[in-house]
């Protein structure tokens, strides 16, 4: 603080609040949408895979990972004993 401060108009704090909020809300909304997409993808993947082979639905993991500067969609599925052969003739 210096005596010069009395001549400098302080920035209204409400303006700062608004800017901070609009940033954080945009970020959190984007994340929410991302999670919704992953959930939908997962359900559809399960449906497709189940047309061809029997799987434990909880064994399918879908996630997005950040590696260096790219995003990677990771789909992880451990097949039940017998693997794909168990599928028989499929659909």
């Amino acid at each position: 603080m210096s005596w010069l401060d009395i001549f400098i108009r302080k920035r209204p704090s409400a303006k700062i609040a608004r800017e901070r909020l609009s940033l954080v809300l945009a970020h959190e909304r984007a994340e929410r949408i991302g999670n919704d997409v992953i959930a939908r993808l997962r359900e559809e993947l399960i449906a497709v895979i189940c047309r061809h082979t029997k799987i434990d639905k909880d064994a399918l993991k879908v996630s997005v990972e950040h590696r260096d500067s790219v995003e990677v969609l990771k789909v992880d599925l451990v097949l039940p004993p017998g693997g794909l052969r168990q599928a028989g003739s499929g659909a």
Binding site: S13, A14, R18, L21
Partner: peptide, 16 residues
């Protein structure tokens, strides 16, 4: 306080 810029205004909150 909202008019003085010390508090988020109702339009700010509504728009956010």
């Amino acid at each position: 306080r909202a008019n003085k810029g010390e508090m988020l205004g109702h339009t700010d909150v509504q728009e956010l």
